[in-house]
Structure formats: structure tokens, C-alpha cells
Design a protein around this nucleic acid. Structure first.
Lengths: 228, 228
DNA sequence: ACCTGAACACCGTTCAAGT
DNA sequence: ACCTGAACACCGTTCAAGT
């Protein structure tokens, strides 16, 4: 069989933006951001005909990951009847995507009002009408949910960066809890009290609890359009 | 008068960690992260006797900025009677600190459960008791507020990085709104509807609206310890 | 003891040459 | 038209030499 690419080592033929983005995702997952060209089996400068620079490439990779993470939420039949549940599922999808790929969480915080972030904003905002949120409150409500999701994403990503072992987090949390317990009692009474709970807490449940707080607050808009 | 430092150009005498952190803050404010050594009037390697590396330095600078931003919130007499207002003020202090120094917002997202982030966590969490939140819910509640604040911080910082002109944001927002309006109507109906509101919206008010949603949700814990 | 600044290491990007 | 990879630019860090 005939190989069309000039480099016979390279699987899959010629380069394209899509292939470069895929390779970027695979590498960020496996090794961190280095070694992109090695993975693509190209010269170090080859990608610059397809993507402007590294920043743009990482944004495209983040966009692609979020797009897949959110795919299908809209179609689930139950979602239309239960916008509250749909928003929880959507949030969890993002949460899960970032748990698996911490670098996505890091990037999400850096593109305001664009691409990946906009997908989440749309997903959340598009369900507020069905939740009964009046038009006037939808922008603030979607923004609150988005900011919370992004904040949790960033913290999660940062924690994963400190402790690379995904899954077994108990040692890590125990160590952090010990730091908390050592803080100055005069300045950090609350932190010290929470130290005992840190090791046993479930990130995912805490994330959902946060979503629920915001949803409850938002639902208050239905009955009380304005306060004194 | 006698100069004790060996470099007569250098104001303030010998180096110290505190001076280096101060210089880092001033430089991050003015020029971005470059030119630290120039500002300190030292050789490029001089800081490494005082700080481990750049990452540690930026964390220390972020910590110092947040400490100052939060200073005094605890002492305000009205705060003790009004924990809700105290949390709003605390959030706004962080929000404001990041508006003035976008780099702080970027850094905040990168240190989980530590230093600067812990200060905010303590400030928020320490007021939940007075809000009437039961012990069992305080961890989740403080975490929700923290994540929202950090998410908003990150978005704000990212927006400021895209548009360096602090203060006059209307051009920038108008441009973003135009992008929103151009999105595929089938995939981004909500985003397109919000485009009209974007240019006129007030970041600060939207931030407070988010805090209020969460506080309202949290206050629901007082009367309903568990749901069906 | 502390600072200097040349040198090194690393990595993102360019571009002349190659196919 | 597309890719190669040496070269360049930039910047964080080290360390032998200087005071």
C-alpha cells in the first residue's frame, strides 16, 4: 500500500488542525504540555502552518474537550422536563471533564466570554427559562452558575496539579488537613474547625451542593421579582 | 550620610524577602511579570537567596495583596451584626483587588486550599455561624462562596488581560457582544439573547447578585435541614 | 554574608532549505 | 504545498567570582 505522507513513521497521513488538536489533547493528558511535536512525529516548527501559536492551540483543545463533555445533555428527554436536573448534570459533566484532565480547568479560567466558557454559559442559561427565571434575571443567574463552575474547576485543577495521583486523594487531603490544623487559632478558627471534615469530604457532592445553593437562590426570583 | 548597601543606585538598602515581594507587586501592577531584577536594581540571580523560585514569589505576592484587601473587614462594627453584609463586603474587596490587579486573579485560581485562598475561605466561613448555618452545612457553604468568588476573579482577570484599559470597558464589551450576536442561532440561542445586555451590564452588580443567590440558598439550610 | 552577571537550560517560534 | 530542523529569542535559574 502506498503511503502519501513523506514521513513513513507518522500514522494517519498529512497534518491538519484537527489532528494537531487531537494530539495536543492526548499529550496534555499524558505528559503535560511538552513533547507535542514528538507525538505528531513532525519537526518542531510544523504546527505553525495550522495553528497560530500555543495559546490558540490550547484554547482549541479546551474547546473540543468541553464540546464533547457537554454533548448529549441537550438531547436527554428527561432534561426538558427537569431543567434543574439538567443544570446539575451539565455542571457534573464539566466537573468530571476537569477531574480527568486538570489542564482543561486551568485553561477555562483564561478565556472570558469565549468558546469553551460560552458553551457552558449557553448550556446553563438555556435552561433558565424552563426553570421559571424571569428574563431580567437570566443574565445574572447564568453568570453566577458559570462563575461557580469555573471556580470549582480551577480549584480542582490546581489540586490535581499538586497531587498527580488521580483517584487516591486521601493522603493528599490528610496532609492539607494537617496544615489547616496548624494555622494560628486566632486568625484561622474556621479553617481549623473544618480541618477534621476535609479528609472525609466528597468533592463531587460538595460541587453539587454549591450548584443547589445557587439554583435555590435563583428560584427565589420566581416569586419575588424585587426586594424592598 | 553613609550608604550601607554596595549598590548606591539601590534605594532602601539590602535585599530582603519583604522588599522583593513588594517589588514584585509593584512590577506586576505596572509592567507584567518581567523586569523584576531591573526594578530591584540587582543582578538577575540575586533574588534566589531569598525566594525559592518565581512561582513561590508570585504566591507570596498574591498572599500579601489579599491580606491587605481583607484587612479591616473583621473589625468593622456593623459586620458582627450583619454577617450577610460582611460576606458581601469581603467578596467585593476581593473583587476590587482583582479589578485593580488582574494578575492576582490569575494566581488565586492556582493555589488550592492554601494561603490567599484560605484567607478568603476563613473570612467567608467565619461568618456562617452568625448567619445561622448549621455546622454540618458550613463546609459546603463556605466552599460554594469561595468557588464563586474565585471563578468571578478568574473571569475578571482574563477579561482585563484581553483588554488592558481599566475603566473604559464599553468598547471591549461591545465587541464581545457583536461576537455573541454572530453565533449560530441553533446552538447559541441564549447567548444571542444576552448579547444585547452585555454592554450595559455592571460586573460589580452581577458579582453581588451571584453572592446573593448563594447566600439565599445557604440561608435555606436554616429552616430545612433536609429535603425529601 | 551577600550580590553580580555570565552562562546554562529550556522552550516557543521563525524561516531558509528541502521534498 | 507542505514539512524539516537549525537557529533565534526569551526567560527562569545556577554558580563561580567578586566585594
Amino acid at each position: 500500500m502506498k503511503t502519501e505522507s513523506r514521513n513513513p513513521q507518522r500514522p494517519g497521513g498529512a497534518l491538519s488542525k484537527a489532528r494537531i488538536v487531537e494530539a495536543a489533547i492526548a499529550i496534555l493528558d499524558a505528559e503535560g504540555e511538552a513533547a507535542l511535536s514528538a507525538r505528531l512525529a513532525t519537526g518542531s516548527g510544523a504546527i505553525y502552518g495550522h495553528v497560530a501559536d500555543k495559546k490558540t492551540l490550547l484554547a482549541a483543545a479546551t474547546d473540543a474537550v468541553i464540546e464533547r463533555a457537554l454533548a448529549g445533555v441537550a438531547e436527554e428527554p428527561a432534561s426538558n422536563d427537569e431543567p434543574r436536573e439538567a443544570i446539575r448534570v451539565l455542571g457534573l459533566r464539566v466537573f468530571e471533564a476537569i477531574r480527568v484532565r486538570p489542564w482543561v480547568g486551568t485553561r477555562l479560567a483564561r478565556e472570558p466570554w469565549q468558546s469553551a466558557t460560552l458553551q457552558i454559559f449557553e448550556g446553563v442559561g438555556g435552561r433558565l427559562e424552563a426553570l421559571g427565571v424571569p428574563q431580567a434575571g437570566q443574565f445574572d443567574a447564568a453568570s453566577a452558575l458559570l462563575n461557580f463552575i469555573l471556580g470549582a474547576a480551577g480549584q480542582n485543577a490546581a489540586a490535581a496539579r499538586l497531587d498527580p495521583r488521580i483517584g487516591d486523594r486521601s493522603d493528599f487531603l490528610t496532609a492539607i488537613a494537617a496544615q489547616w490544623a496548624r494555622r494560628d487559632p486566632a486568625r484561622y478558627p474556621f479553617v481549623r474547625r473544618m480541618a477534621a471534615q476535609l479528609a472525609g469530604h466528597d468533592d463531587r457532592e460538595q460541587f453539587l451542593a454549591g450548584i443547589d445553593f445557587i439554583l435555590s437562590g435563583i428560584e427565589g426570583l420566581r416569586k419575588e421579582p424585587s426586594l424592598p
